[in-house]
């Protein structure tokens, strides 16, 4: 369980995110949605201790993310940001191997290699594992990054807009793989998503944010309503019945 208590980030006197108090339960996929500037990424990166918290407290599985040694956190929580650019030239497999660093300290054992192979196979990267990252398409590279955080073998996985720049096919593939990671591997996945329909279809819980506050937290059925979505996104949204569940139409 991830617990946020009065968490606040001050960007300037007038711009602040929070205070946010909420709980994200273990298991399944929780999607963070909301308009631009609502504070989704801020909250996610603060949970992942990539961003300092100005006020309040965040605990993941009972561990305070600020006071617990970073190395210990790295074994229970992994976080992936939107932009990843490396100056080093790495193969897919070497990158995924770095996911084992919190456990191996850089000395990979046979056991580590087994986890690495599993993560690569899980994301269908087996054929590509010896390719260099600069020889991959954007979608393949994104999958390689996700494989790295899966190889980290953490109960909690935080992903900041992993569907960015992915086309339909790859976005759907990615969500299906994350769904499997949650169902088959028992990971708790927290994900920032822009497309409300993706969130509704693939996630178990939706956490809606606006103006730095959590405005709604519930199941997709509770969120996928005309008045709720229109309020969150400041736009006329009509929810219709699609072939695979409710669909939000906003254009």
């Amino acid at each position: 369980m991830i617990t946020l208590t009065d968490v606040q980030k001050d960007y300037s006197d007038s711009v602040q995110i929070g205070p946010v108090t909420t709980e994200i339960e273990s298991g399944g996929i929780t999607a963070l949605v909301g308009p631009n500037g609502a504070g989704k990424s801020t909250i996610l990166t603060m949970i992942g201790r990539l961003l300092d918290i100005d006020q309040g407290q965040i605990t993941v599985a009972g561990h305070d993310v600020v006071n617990t040694p970073s190395k210990a956190i790295a074994k229970i929580l992994s976080v992936l940001r939107q932009e990843n650019h490396f100056v080093t030239r790495l193969t897919v497999r070497q990158l995924v191997g770095f996911g084992r660093f919190p456990h191996s300290g850089g000395r990979l054992t046979l056991g580590d290699e087994k986890y690495i192979s599993e993560a690569i196979d899980f994301l269908n990267l087996t054929e590509l594992e010896n390719r260099y990252l600069d020889q991959l398409s954007g979608g393949q590279r994104q999958r390689a990054y996700v494989a790295m955080v899966l190889a980290q073998q953490t109960d909690y996985v935080l992903l900041d807009e992993p569907l960015n720049n992915l086309d339909m096919q790859h976005a759907v593939q990615m969500m299906k793989q994350l769904r499997r990671a949650a169902d088959e591997l028992g990971r708790t996945i927290v994900i920032v998503l822009h497309d409300i329909n993706f969130a509704a279809h693939y996630s178990d819980k939706i956490l809606a944010m606006k103006h730095g506050q959590v405005v709604k937290h519930g199941t997709p059925e509770e969120i996928m309503r005309n008045e709720v979505l229109s309020e969150i996104f400041n736009t006329e949204v009509n929810v219709i019945d699609g072939p695979n569940g409710p669909l939000a139409v906003y254009y």
């Binding site: 976080v79 770095f98 850089g106």
Partner: peptide
């Protein structure tokens, strides 16, 4: 070994538990 991780940039290094 830590330098190898630092080379991946700040957020990846933090994620992997490097101070």
């Amino acid at each position: 070994h830590k330098l190898n991780v630092i080379a991946l940039g700040k957020s990846t290094a933090l994620n992997l538990g490097v101070n």
